[in-house]
Nucleic acid binder design. Structure first.
Lengths: 299, 299
DNA sequence: GGTTGGCATGCGAGACTCGCATGTCTTGGA
DNA sequence: TCCAAGACATGCGAGTCTCGCATGCCAACC
């Protein structure tokens, strides 16, 4: 059945005349006559009594009219919804990110998206890069904000990646530390410090970076949480590396000083969307906003 | 938009594959591919992500799927309703009748229709032939049960008439009347009686019929209501004519004797439906039932 | 009784839809 | 590494559908 038949039927029912309906719809009277005939044949019932002047709905026509109006309204609603979705007046974005992206990058981007498109629903979940990429691949996420060195990123499940920025490393020092007022610090200057690390595994950023500088850091404390690391630093127990994205949440009684860019490899930060298929307009927009926010943060 | 597109879309969404959907619908894969493409073009959005193995709904596809299912369900409902209406499992009949048809003809017919088709709603209204025909013409009634002499019927607004039966006249007599046990009475035998008439106008049945028998009836009382006429007769105040259809409601303490058929013109009883257009199946059925019941009553 | 208004229909041009065969791309196995 | 299999896209041609035009037919109205 062609929905045009229903539109014609509705117009005829409203106007009470094939000719009038044809005029309003831009058809000829003949086309209207045939479409009504087609609908009557399809429904196997007479929808209009043909009078000397115009037509009148039969009882079965009244039955059908209710349904026809509902169907046409619903189709209209469908078109409306799809248009709204395309123009970001509806929809949903499920975004996942690594922990420190949640300090300011992701919330700032979400806030900016919500401000511009308040009808888009945004949900968020934390996770490690590998988990996020897997959830993306299984369509549990629309956008994943990942970080990692090139080889780590390459090892992830397929995804469409947008490089947002590279993440410089900084070092967090107790407030009164001798280097606390420097604008840049070389890693080598910290060879004798007590270090607070996130883990003691060899692939850890600190260890490999320090090795390249020719020393083996003395890891005095292993502390996973950034908030706890800060406590150790503030207490003067040691120093620790801080990714740039986490700097905004550093407590005021510690100093955070950039490392010289040559001393640590830069971790890339990426916005990932599903490899196959088209991201939703809202997801695509969020990636753009993430890109903007990242530029603002780093630049 | 062709609703077949929506059916194809739904099938593909359920199966996750053009090929599978094609198999279940009896199409080729190529037809499915084209219909989905047509729907996507019509909606101006991509409904499925094409994967290496099958397809997956996009977010806009999920939006549309809800609407598509609703539309298809509604269309299904429409077909179901029309079928139910045609087979008297739904619908409505508004029937009107002259007063004495309400004594037993019309209620018996309605009862019989309701017994066979309990889902058909029947409503009823009383009225004079002219009113009923007018309401029929303005589609306020579906069936009108009329009575009248041929010239009266001919003067009514156009309607499709079914002749149900002719209505013999009887005379109601006080229980102890000298003619009370007769099987037939000639009008002439009642020339000297006191008459109870419904009106005193010259076109009244009694007067014209009596005139043809060569006497002018002595109308002692003018009483409109049949129930009241019975009271006058029972009290021995006179005699009155009774149409056959009202006999069933005669009180037991009066006698009702058929008049000789030659003595009064027979009034016809008709079931009328709209002149133009098709009566609903339920209305048509009611006319048939009225015909049956009338045959039972008179025959 | 002619005229007018309004629905139905024969006809032909153009558009659409389908199936068939084939192309393209990805995946997975030899 | 290459080939086979699976799955969607697409060129092509036959058949069907739909439209507008012109005309027919019918009832109503002047």
């Amino acid at each position: 059945m062609d929905t045009a038949w229903l539109e014609v039927f509705r117009a005829v029912a409203r106007r009470g005349s094939f000719t009038e309906a044809a005029k309003t719809l831009g058809y000829t009277q003949s086309a209207v006559s045939r479409q009504v005939a087609a609908l009557e044949s399809d429904m196997d019932t007479v929808l209009f009594d043909r009078l000397a002047r115009g037509v009148r709905l039969t009882e079965s026509g009244r039955f059908l009219l209710d349904h026809a109006e509902a169907v046409l309204d619903r189709l209209d609603g469908a078109r409306h919804d799809v248009r709204a979705w395309k123009s970001l007046r509806a929809g949903r974005v499920r975004v996942g990110s690594f922990a420190t992206a949640g300090v300011s990058l992701v919330p700032a981007a979400i806030a900016r998206l919500r401000a511009a498109h308040p009808d888009v629903t945004v949900t968020h979940a934390d996770g490690l890069a590998r988990e996020l990429a897997a959830r993306l691949a299984s369509s549990d996420l629309d956008v994943a904000v990942l970080n990692g060195y090139p080889d780590q990123i390459a090892a992830l499940p397929a995804a469409r990646l947008r490089h947002l920025c590279d993440e410089p490393m900084l070092v967090a020092l107790p407030a009164g530390h001798r280097l606390a007022r420097r604008t840049t610090v070389r890693l080598g200057e910290l060879a004798d410090e007590a270090w607070i690390a996130g883990s003691s595994s060899p692939e850890e950023t600190l260890i490999s970076a320090a090795a390249r500088q020719g020393f083996r850091p003395r890891i005095s404390y292993v502390v996973r949480e950034w908030i706890a690391k800060q406590g150790f630093v503030a207490a003067g127990l040691g120093v620790t590396l801080v990714p740039a994205l986490a700097v905004d949440s550093a407590r005021p009684d510690i100093a955070v000083v950039p490392l010289h860019p040559k001393d640590t490899p830069l971790r890339g930060i990426y916005a990932a969307t599903i490899a196959d298929g088209t991201p939703s307009p809202a997801a695509a927009r969020l990636v753009d906003v993430l890109d903007d926010v990242a530029s603002d943060l780093v630049g």
